[in-house]
C-alpha cells in the first residue's frame, strides 16, 4: 500500500488558507512522509491522478467553475474538508450575497461615476468572454453544493489546527481539536 493521498484547492478564497498549510513550517516534511500530494496548487498537479484520501477546500463557490472543481473534489476524495471561513460560510466574498448581481457588476465596471468604476474600465462593459465562468447569484458555502465531512474554521485556520486535523485523520484518530484550535478569525 502506498501512502495516503492529499489534494487541495482554492475556490473563491485568497490562498490564505494555503499559506496556513505552509505555515506548519518544518512539519511539512513530516507531512510529506505521511502523504503524497495529488491535485494541488502546492505541487501544481492540475488533474486528479486517481482516488484521493483527503481533499482540502479553501474558499466558497462564487462561479460555475468553483462548483465544477468542488464537485470534482467530492467525487475523487474520500474525505472532504472545508478549510477556512470562506469554504464554510462564503466568507468575505459572501458580503455580496444580499446585493443583486447586476448591482455588483455595475459597482465594479460601470463608467457611471455614481456607481463605479472600481476598476479602470473606460468601455464600461462587463467582461464577457465565453471563457469566463458565469458568476453564481450569490456565494455559496461549500456544504450547500456537496457533502462536507469536516469543517476547520478560521480566517485562516491556524496552521496547528490544520496539522492536528491532518494527523488525526491520517492516523485514524477522531478529530477532536482542543479549545484553542477552534477559532473563527
Amino acid at each position: 500500500m502506498g501512502k495516503p493521498k492529499l489534494a487541495t484547492t482554492s475556490l473563491c478564497g485568497c490562498f490564505g488558507c494555503h499559506m496556513s498549510v505552509l505555515d506548519i513550517d518544518d512539519r511539512i516534511l513530516k507531512l510529506i512522509e505521511l502523504v503524497d500530494f495529488d491535485k494541488s496548487p502546492i505541487d501544481d498537479i492540475k488533474e486528479f491522478t486517481g482516488p484521493v484520501d483527503i481533499g482540502l477546500i479553501e474558499g466558497g463557490c462564487c462561479n460555475e467553475e468553483n462548483v465544477h472543481v468542488l464537485k470534482d473534489f467530492r467525487k475523487n476524495c474520500k474525505i472532504l474538508i472545508s478549510v477556512g471561513d470562506c469554504a464554510i460560510d462564503g466568507g468575505i466574498p459572501a458580503l455580496r450575497n444580499n446585493i443583486p448581481l447586476k448591482e455588483c457588476f455595475d459597482e465594479a465596471y460601470s463608467t457611471d461615476n455614481r456607481l463605479g468604476p472600481a476598476v479602470l474600465n473606460p468601455s464600461g462593459k462587463v467582461p464577457n468572454d465565453p471563457e469566463l465562468p458565469l458568476l453564481l447569484d450569490r456565494v455559496y458555502p461549500c456544504s450547500e453544493i456537496v457533502k462536507i465531512d469536516y469543517h476547520l474554521p478560521g480566517c485562516p485556520p491556524p496552521a496547528d489546527t490544520i496539522w492536528e486535523a491532518m494527523v488525526a485523520l491520517l492516523t485514524d484518530k477522531p478529530v477532536a481539536l482542543p479549545y484553542e484550535l477552534i477559532k473563527y478569525d
Binding site: S82, I88, D89, A94, P141, S143, I182
Partner: peptide, 9 residues
C-alpha cells in the same frame, strides 16, 4: 466548528 443550518444572509 460550523453551524449545521444553512446560512440565511
Amino acid at each position: 466548528a460550523a453551524p449545521r443550518f444553512p446560512f440565511q444572509f
